[in-house]
């Protein structure tokens, strides 16, 4: 066991735990933001540099501070370690820099982006970025690429978190998906512009923190904040069948994997569940989805609602000025 203190809060965790995992155990107040780390994907993390933290004391045995900021998602805790996240001015500065770098070539086309409202980059920019841009250069752009009839790749929005590459490597049979070119010309690609064709390919959409990979069956149907997420399941022979259904009125517009409070998929789902089962009759409804902070849909919508069998879909209404409780 190792005792670690993050922003003055101490927790005891198992050896081999990363600083990020320890911080998440303490709670969202001290957890560094992440863009590329994904708890269900091995070797993810370390690329985006948003979770950089300052280690002010290495360990009980070797109390020297670490010379550089470290990626908390890839650095293990040591007994007696002390870490500064939001309390470290160095970290705040560095993170501001990272946000600026991530937005440097991002098109900021949020008004027409399907990810808007549940985009980690929006949250990150809002919480850790600065208000103005300092670049007046042409932004890098790419042609849109179709990865089959279900998935759209819009590389211009990509922040190269490598999550989709890891999904393609780790949960599907073939390595069909990777990165071409280098530097700021790097692009995610299926060699080259191939259709992704396997039962779990749709998960690349769920793990994408921005709007670079989107669901063609949902594109431009609705802003996410006008849809209501509902937990549902079905017996599926390929995956766990545990999903979120996103309703607009009576209609299921979109099916996604269930995400935890960090916006990371809990269990990967198959393409049949995701793309082909869009009728309420296909599903057993479990109740309203717990909505995490990475969404504009506030959890307050459901406070008065019942779970399980008492749950009635039509009771779930988007909050509006007239309908809202207001309290």
């Amino acid at each position: 066991m190792a005792k670690v203190t993050i922003d003055g809060k101490t927790i005891e965790v198992a050896d081999g735990t990363t600083i990020l995992q320890a911080a998440r155990m303490i709670g969202p107040d001290v957890a560094p933001p992440t863009m590329c780390y994904h708890s269900k994907l091995k070797t993810s993390g370390g690329y985006c540099r948003t979770c950089l933290v300052e280690v002010t004391k290495g360990s009980e045995k070797d109390p020297r501070p670490m010379p550089k900021l470290v990626a908390s998602c890839r650095t293990n805790v040591m007994d007696g370690m002390e870490v500064g996240n939001l309390t470290s001015p160095k970290v705040i500065e560095a993170r501001k820099g990272v946000v600026e770098f991530l937005l440097l070539n991002h098109p900021l086309d949020c008004p027409i982006c399907d990810q808007a409202g549940e985009c980690h980059l929006q949250d990150l920019g809002y919480e850790h970025g600065s208000a103005k841009t300092r670049t007046d250069f042409e932004r890098r752009t790419f042609e849109k690429i179709s990865l089959g009839d279900k998935i759209q790749l819009h590389m211009t929005r990509c922040i190269l978190c490598y999550r989709c590459v890891k999904v393609a490597d780790q949960i599907t049979d073939n390595r069909v998906h990777g990165v071409l070119n280098r530097g700021d010309h790097s692009e995610i690609s299926t060699y080259i512009e191939n259709v992704i064709d396997n039962d779990f390919s749709g998960n690349v959409i769920d793990v994408c923190p921005v709007g670079a990979l989107t669901d063609k069956t949902f594109r431009f149907k609705s802003r996410v904040w006008f849809t209501k997420p509902v937990c549902a399941h079905r017996n599926c022979d390929k995956c766990s069948g545990k999903v979120h259904l996103w309703y607009k009125g009576e209609e299921v517009l979109r099916v996604t994997g269930r995400k935890d409070q960090w916006g990371e998929v809990e269990e990967f789902i198959c393409n049949t569940c995701r793309f082909d089962k869009k009728k309420t009759s296909d599903w057993e409804i479990d109740g309203p989805a717990p909505v995490n902070r990475h969404s504009v849909i506030s959890a307050n919508h459901y406070q008065t609602l019942k779970m399980g069998s008492e749950f009635k879909l039509n009771d779930v209404k988007p909050l509006s000025i007239t309908e809202g409780e207001g309290s």
């Binding site: 690329y47 985006c48 990272v98 070539n105 922040i159 280098r182 530097g183 700021d184 790097s186």
Partner: peptide, 16 residues
């Protein structure tokens, strides 16, 4: 030209 493009500060900063 030589940045690998893996991590954001180098990928974006060198070009800038």
């Amino acid at each position: 030209h030589e940045s690998c493009g893996q991590c954001s500060p180098c990928r974006e900063g060198t070009g800038w």
